[in-house]
């Protein structure tokens, strides 16, 4: 039976939010399913399992990826940050506070992904990466509405909190600038 032969299990240690998790894992397991089903880190959401919605966005070495499109085995040497590592109810990250203040969500299912994605996106802008809508490739892109919307369009929100997500990101970015960060 080729199905049986195809199955492989392997040992894996993943560092998530600074904590090592060691498991034997079916090598077909995505990073998303490892987080949710094996480590109990269910803050990262599964919306499509196909890289089409952004609900599963996590930060890998500071860069945002769709964790459903990546196998867990590929991340043995990586530093993974999930929403649980961003902040907690009693100790919110300022971007999380900004989401609450601006009502940047309704059902909340896309929210972990929006927040992780926004954190990654802001680093990309700070590093000077242009986007499809940047008028000029050379200077650091402005953090205006068009840039934020373009760069966040991989994160779907069926509740359509879009204008308020953008407002939350802008207010967080402005407060960071105010602190000279």
């Amino acid at each position: 039976m080729d199905w049986i032969d195809a199955e492989v299990e392997a040992p894996l240690t993943l560092r998530v939010n600074g904590v090592p998790h060691s498991v034997r894992i079916d090598t077909r397991t995505t990073l998303l399913d490892a987080l949710r089903e094996r480590f109990g880190l269910t803050g990262t959401k599964k919306g499509c399992d196909h890289g089409q919605c952004g609900a599963c966005t996590v930060l890998v070495n500071g860069r945002r990826i769709n964790s459903c499109l990546s196998l867990a085995m590929m991340h043995a040497d990586d530093e993974i940050t999930t929403i649980e590592g961003v902040g907690a109810p009693g100790a919110l990250h300022p971007l999380q506070t900004a989401f609450i203040d601006a009502d940047g969500f309704q059902c909340g299912y896309c929210t972990s992904g929006q927040i992780c994605s926004a954190l990654g996106m802001l680093e990309e802008v700070a590093a000077g990466w242009p986007s499809h809508v940047s008028g000029d490739l050379m200077p650091a892109p402005p953090l205006d509405l068009g840039e934020i919307c373009e760069r966040m369009s991989g994160n779907l929100c069926r509740c359509a909190a879009y204008p308020r997500i953008v407002a939350a990101i802008q207010s967080y970015a402005a407060s960071r600038e105010g602190e000279g960060a």
């Binding site: 803050g43 959401k45 649980e84 961003v86 907690a88 999380q96 989401f99 609450i100 299912y109 929210t111």
Partner: peptide
């Protein structure tokens, strides 16, 4: 809100 923005709100699955 604090549960939703931190991933602590638990959904069906």
């Amino acid at each position: 809100g604090p549960f939703k923005v931190t991933g602590q709100a638990r959904y069906a699955a």
